[in-house]
């Protein structure tokens, strides 16, 4: 869960930075930011499934 929180903090920073650069008229960083955000979301999803599997295993 701590890992997901860390990833989420990075993603919040990424979103605010890309929004800031977009509003400032710099659009070069928007595509890489979206790609990295997608990767971080994939990581969160993978961790979520991992936690779910561990939780279910421990109940058996």
């Amino acid at each position: 869960m701590a890992l997901i929180v860390v990833l989420l903090i990075v993603q919040i920073w990424l979103l605010s930075a890309s929004l800031e650069s977009y509003l400032a008229g710099h659009t070069g960083a928007v595509l890489p930011a979206a790609i990295f955000s997608g990767l971080i979301f994939s990581g969160c999803l993978a961790l979520n499934f991992f936690v779910k599997r561990v939780d279910e295993d421990s109940r058996r």
Partner: peptide, 25 residues
Amino acid sequence: RQFTKFLTLASLGMFVGNLWILAKV
């Protein structure tokens, strides 16, 4: 586990936000 789900949903929201900015550009 529910909280982890919520965090993952929040992560999805951030990703959608980034995609929205990309679409705007």
